[in-house]
Design a protein around this nucleic acid. Sequence first.
DNA 1: TGTACATCAGTGAACGCGCGTTCACTGATGTAC
DNA 2: TGTACATCAGTGAACGCGCGTTCACTGATGTAC
Lengths: 193, 193
Amino acid sequence: MRFEKGHKAATRRHILDVASKCFRREGISAAGISGIMGEAGLTNGAFYPHFGSKEELVREAVANALAEHQHRLEENLHAGLDLENVIRTYLSQAHREERACGCPSAALLPEIARQPELTRKAYADGLRTFVSTLAALLPDADLPAAGRRATAIFALMVGTLQFARATPDATHAKQILEDGVKAALLLARAPST
Amino acid sequence: MRFEKGHKAATRRHILDVASKCFRREGISAAGISGIMGEAGLTNGAFYPHFGSKEELVREAVANALAEHQHRLEENLHAGLDLENVIRTYLSQAHREERACGCPSAALLPEIARQPELTRKAYADGLRTFVSTLAALLPDADLPAAGRRATAIFALMVGTLQFARATPDATHAKQILEDGVKAALLLARAPST
DNA sequence: TGTACATCAGTGAACGCGCGTTCACTGATGTAC
DNA sequence: TGTACATCAGTGAACGCGCGTTCACTGATGTAC
């Protein structure tokens, strides 16, 4: 079967989308090529014409997940959400439950830290972009200071979401999320130093 | 070879110590029984007289790592360290580099969130204890409020350390750690609400 | 216009390997007589 | 006091399985003549 022009590139993007969800849901080392390809509606043999190795897929899937998450943030901002809305959406029960389509940092950070340098570089770039976008919502006078505060605010958000996901008791998890929102807002509104 | 009384229990503790380090270093699903047993100076066959399954080992090793980390915190407090010292030690270059003996939350949280309920319960208990210990260092009037703020402060610390570990550029990582310290201290000193 | 061929995304079986787990066995020591 | 036996932590080979990866093959379509 021969395919229309652009078909291969579309398949590749589809594999990346599926992989980035599988990794976030199951973890990078727990998710396998066969499972990902099966979920993409293909057989495992079709993987290697698209990617050189699992490592390459991981690197691109991490970048893909970050870009997707970044895109969703920008959409929300265009729709008029302010920083408080962004924080409340991030630290919500829905985000706690939806790991596959959620923040890649919350789902994968310790595993990303164990990846080869190229993957970590790709992650660090995506993180920097995300933090800059958050920083633009802060009232700080100079941008570098805002970036530094935004980094800490996002770290608080990521850690809080991870706590809430690990906690099996839903009530306790909800409390953790609320505490995170309160502290994040406090940091966002604190007088700039 | 027959062994003195208490030998088996000592071996079990030794396996747990090694496993809790392996998990933090390599990740839970990436670390294998054979590797752990080899590092403990035993053969893989000796595992099952001590533990019923890998899942059981994970649960106990997570609890073990939390207890060890808790113990180190309490030692530091007895030695006279205050909250600022604790934060600076946690968000230090040394802790960024020493994953195997460091904070289990920073090394394992997303993987713990994917474990069976029993493991997540064990984690949540350890987390609560740790946060309570931190809360006692806060100036808050009532304890529940202090606990809620301590949760957020610890979440910020965990997220920040994870960012710093994932970032390949050492200078940028150092900056992230410093921003985390500053924000954590701001949260710790903010007037209680 | 009709036919033979080239293309190439995807198939599916197979590779070696390491996983978690099982089990018959070892062998130094404590105990029984 | 000396000998035969029971104990049991640990050994190491093997189990079935799924991993990441390779490769000969398929077969629908575009192209050449």
